[in-house]
Simulated assay, not measured.
Amino acid sequence: MLDAIGDQILYVGEIGAGNTAKLVHNCASMIIRSGIAEVFTMGVKAGVEPAALWHALRQGAIGRARTFDRVGDRYLQEAFDPPSFALNLANKDLRLALELAEQFDVPMRAARLVQEDFQEALDRGWGNRDSQTPLLLQNERAGVTIKLSADEVQGVLDRG
């Protein structure tokens, strides 16, 4: 029966865990797509042709990686030092992007929320840590600890 509605059947835990995993996956998908639409409208309104912009996004470091694999490198392991891209530098780029959006009158609701977290992380002195460090703020707000070992992350990646 499950094969009829999905292309991969995975066991994620006891009864109800599958539904939770599905909701988490679908919600992440919706948030990511909304964020892409936000930044895409900024790029197009600033004069970049849509196909060229999409190509550039796909060829960037994040665009070439599987989105969910990237969170295993830093966030899921709480491995923010040394940074691959320092929060200070990411914040500069975010600020410049928001300035560009303002120049072209493009609303950037999601990016402004990210900016708030970046600012809080900077206020805590995390500027020289990795740009994923602000994700820890959500853990704090939710009252959870998320930390996998490198072997646990690799084990998930190895399963495909």
Rank of each mutant, 00 (worst) to 15 (best):
D93S: 05
E152R: 07
V44H: 15
I9Q: 12
L87V: 03
L10P: 00
A17N: 10
A28F: 10
H55N: 12
Q77R: 14
L10N: 05
L53K: 06
L10I: 13
V144R: 00
M30T: 11
K147D: 10
D3V: 04
D93W: 05
A46E: 08
Q103W: 04
E49K: 11
V39D: 01
F104C: 06
Y75D: 01
A97R: 00
D93T: 07
Q59A: 14
P83D: 01
G13Q: 03
G60T: 03
A37P: 03
R124D: 04
L135R: 04
L148D: 01
R109K: 10
P107W: 08
A21S: 09
A61N: 05
G16I: 04
A79V: 01
K45F: 06
V24N: 07
I15H: 08
Q77M: 06
A121L: 01
V71Y: 13
D123N: 15
L10W: 09
L87S: 01
Q119P: 01
R70C: 04
G125S: 09
A97H: 00
A97K: 00
V24W: 05
D158R: 13
W54A: 14
R33V: 07
Q138M: 11
Q8C: 14
E152K: 09
D158K: 14
G35L: 15
A4D: 14
F85A: 06
L136C: 03
N139F: 03
T67Q: 14
V71I: 14
R66G: 07
L89P: 08
G35P: 02
F80E: 00
P134I: 11
R64V: 10
R124P: 10
Q138G: 01
R112A: 00
F104Y: 15
T20H: 12
N26H: 13
L148R: 12
A52M: 08
M1S: 11
H25G: 08
R95Q: 12
T145W: 00
A56M: 14
R112E: 06
D7S: 15
L10E: 11
F85I: 02
R112N: 06
M108D: 03
D105Y: 02
E99K: 13
E99F: 04
D69N: 09
A97T: 04
Q132F: 07
I31W: 15
G125N: 09
A46H: 11
L113V: 10
G155A: 04
A21K: 12
G127F: 03
G160M: 04
I36R: 02
A46G: 10
P50S: 09
G16Y: 08
L113E: 13
G43Q: 05
Q103P: 05
G18L: 01
